[in-house]
Design a protein around this nucleic acid. Sequence first.
DNA 1: CTGAAAGCGCTTACAG
DNA 2: CTGAAAGCGCTTACAG
Lengths: 354, 354
Amino acid sequence: MKSTEIAKLAGVSRSTVSRVINGYSNVPPETRRRVMDVVEKYGYSPNNAARNLAGKPSRIVGLFIVDLDETSENIIHASPFYSAFLTYAADRLQQKGYQLLVSVIKNRMQMKNILNMFQENMVSGGIFMGDLVPSSILKALSDAHCTSILINQRESVNYPGILTANTENYWGAYEAVNTLIENGHKRIAHIAGSIDKSSTRERFEGYRDCLLKNGIPFEENLVVKMNIHREENGYWAAKQIFANNQGRLPTAIFSSNDLLALGAMRALGDMGFRIPQDVSIIGFDNTEISRFTTPPLSTVAASVEKLSNLAIDNLVALVEGKECLRQNLKLEEFEVIVRESILNINAPETPTDI
Amino acid sequence: MKSTEIAKLAGVSRSTVSRVINGYSNVPPETRRRVMDVVEKYGYSPNNAARNLAGKPSRIVGLFIVDLDETSENIIHASPFYSAFLTYAADRLQQKGYQLLVSVIKNRMQMKNILNMFQENMVSGGIFMGDLVPSSILKALSDAHCTSILINQRESVNYPGILTANTENYWGAYEAVNTLIENGHKRIAHIAGSIDKSSTRERFEGYRDCLLKNGIPFEENLVVKMNIHREENGYWAAKQIFANNQGRLPTAIFSSNDLLALGAMRALGDMGFRIPQDVSIIGFDNTEISRFTTPPLSTVAASVEKLSNLAIDNLVALVEGKECLRQNLKLEEFEVIVRESILNINAPETPTDI
DNA sequence: CTGAAAGCGCTTACAG
DNA sequence: CTGAAAGCGCTTACAG
């Protein structure tokens, strides 16, 4: 079925069919009805390749997962955050009549190719996750009107047409550390991520500032920076922290994400420390797994679903030409989830000891 | 950059540029070189919409996640198998120069629309997961040359151009149950999925046949069928099994997947049973979470990555017109992973009792 | 309000 | 081996 046939059956021209399909106003209700009847009867839907070629934006959004680190496994499997975001995004887009094209970006050439995808109307919006997208690319995207959104990459950006969406990393981290302090901990280590990306940098800053605000000195050697997408890195980070602090061991760890926390828990076990009796630990992200660890891992939860919805809703609005109220979005809600991985070391002696 | 400009710069016609780009043989090396130099210099890549419209197949594969059950949450989030498969598939396709378009199918109309996507050269291959795709649709896909593969849906299909890929569900289940039997269990319950889909039906059959082979009668009321995508269903299934078998409680459970097993473990805890001292349990899929439960859950592992690779490799080969050796694929490798959720109830008395 | 016509950027018989 | 031309199925000024 093509528009010519619909036109013939409805007794109008292709132009009119096109106007009806695209919902233009300059066609009287009676004509519209006649055309729509035929369209519905034959289940006609216009050919997308032809529409795109003729200049119509496509209803496809590209999800670009940037993974420039050749040494690591593919980050989409490694980190549950990505696959969760991806599935929520696909779902939300579906509801709005869009589809999701998933693309893993391994090098700068593939990055350049994204511009082509926009110019060809293959995608009309982009979502960027993973490794930091360089400013030069952001500028190129903005100049070429490639409407896009960065997820947990930068705190803010002001290239026109480029949005950012972030979770409340700073205060989330701050409150995680505050929770440890409320439980009597003073010597708190941090397994951190890269400072390039705002998400992990802000988590680090929240950690540091919370210590200082509570009169606890910040110590460089209680912090280890790691690539956040590998559980093993959490293992090695914990080993390193404990090796560097013989005699003044930390009583608690704040880990930049749950995945690293998992590795750290294994390391603590191997070193003969019990959780939480010897060391308390809290992660970030509230990934599925955190509920099931032994003991269950405390963590900071910011809904991936809500972040995804926030991002998709604003991106699609911008793609569709609606006024964009805020360029730099933040999901402010978060929750510190305290599970059994934290011990209150201020707790009064147990009755039996009295 | 468009082909006309490349043609001008290389001093040839658009036709020749097209021939070079498409790697046709009837162009002498010298001309090819001259064209390629210009192509590379300007980073030209042909417009996909135009190619598709002109009849070239696209390098996009659609992943259609069928979810007709209106009552449930979206199954892609619910079940870790889907998001794992999806990410591996995106990765493997990327390596072959393809991209993945993710689409959630909520009703028959969207299902029909898939045919359009093929006809418009939007996608040149399809992967179907989730709820069973009706035969009528399979026939339509086959007739319209929509090369596709069904994942864990049907044991076999013989419509031309439609493949199936399955894990070794029957023997995986058989060996899981056999492991329980080897550990002295005789009264073994089963939390099953729908019998429509081959994956869950075969797991049920493996369970049943293993019992019979070992001289253990099969009892209907030790089996409960559930939608496999919700943890709660595992909870209710376990409750129901124990309620129906007062006085002759099972000593072990084989669950059709890990997600249901998780729910069952919670139910056992709530009913005051200890795992594995009172009840042993084994799941299926070896999802990430299974390593972290308390106690760690025994399970059957068939690599999602290998299944995904098997499916993608064969689908792409068929899409590209290569001879297809086998239409119904099976990933035969699997492994029963025994963790602490299984107790050997044949074990000799402990020394202290002697 | 509506149709005829040009144009989107490719590919592919066809003719030479 | 190579170019001129038709065609893929739409959209959109343009003219009326």
